[in-house]
């Protein structure tokens, strides 16, 4: 997971971090059960205050995206898989709608699109 913060940005630092971690989880880059760096380790890596990272983790816990276990650390929550899946579906739907719009601009019919998709499915065999 990469977190890049900008001190020049309008958004407060902790919001930036929350957004980036949230994105990382929702996009599937981080999976359920993956461990997150400790609050202090994250503060050191990002060179920010420990209180900032504390708030980040508190916020993520409130959104049920992560679980914190005393003495063990913080982990990506498995409990919210449904919600995460819904979010990813939404993102995928948006991409699908974009494909449809784009294909209309290119004067492709629904059948053309589906045939093209079939071709691509064959090419994109899981490796």
């Amino acid at each position: 997971m990469n977190i890049i913060i900008s001190h020049a940005s309008e958004d407060p630092i902790y919001i930036q971090i929350v957004n980036q971690i949230r994105h990382s989880i929702l996009s599937g880059e981080m999976k359920a059960g993956d461990s997150l760096p400790s609050i202090r380790q994250l503060a050191k890596d990002l060179q920010v205050s420990v209180i900032t990272t504390k708030r980040v983790y508190e916020e993520l816990e409130k959104e049920k995206l992560i679980d914190s276990v005393v003495g063990k650390g913080s982990f990506v929550s498995g409990a919210n898989m449904e919600f995460i899946r819904e979010q990813r579906m939404k993102l995928l739907e948006e991409k699908m709608i974009e494909v449809i719009r784009e294909s209309r601009d290119l004067n492709m019919s629904e059948e053309d699109v589906i045939n093209h998709l079939k071709l691509l499915f064959e090419e994109e065999q899981p490796s």
Binding site: Y14, Q47, V48, V50, I51
Partner: peptide
């Protein structure tokens, strides 16, 4: 600016504030 958690500001012998930096 970056790593402090709390800031205590003293000016002219008085405490102006002692608070979370963020």
């Amino acid at each position: 600016d970056r790593i402090a958690d709390y800031i205590a500001f003293v000016n002219r012998g008085k405490l102006v504030f002692n608070d979370v930096k963020d």
